[in-house]
Amino acid sequence: MSDILQRMQERLSSSLQPEHLDIEDDSAAHAGHAGARSGGGHYNLTIVSPCFAGLSRVKRHQMVYEALGDLMKTGIHALAIKAFAPNEI
């Protein structure tokens, strides 16, 4: 597992106590396009956490971004997010 993937998992796990967390590394599909030059990867995240209950989509994504902190600026170029509360799945 890549270093970035592991750090993403650690940060999301500790901040949002997810019941389910899945991160797919999609970087290979984007290798070579302009945005990938900086080296940041493309990831698809699915996260189920009780922290999201009752919150808007924008708020949920902001919580994910906040948990990831500086990884959003350095290791991650693009992140697709699906964020659910446990009662929504």
Partner: peptide, 18 residues
Amino acid sequence: WPTIPQLYVKGEFIGGSD
């Protein structure tokens, strides 16, 4: 919000592409 694109409708931030 750390990413682009960003959509605004009537001045309100709606979200990114997801």
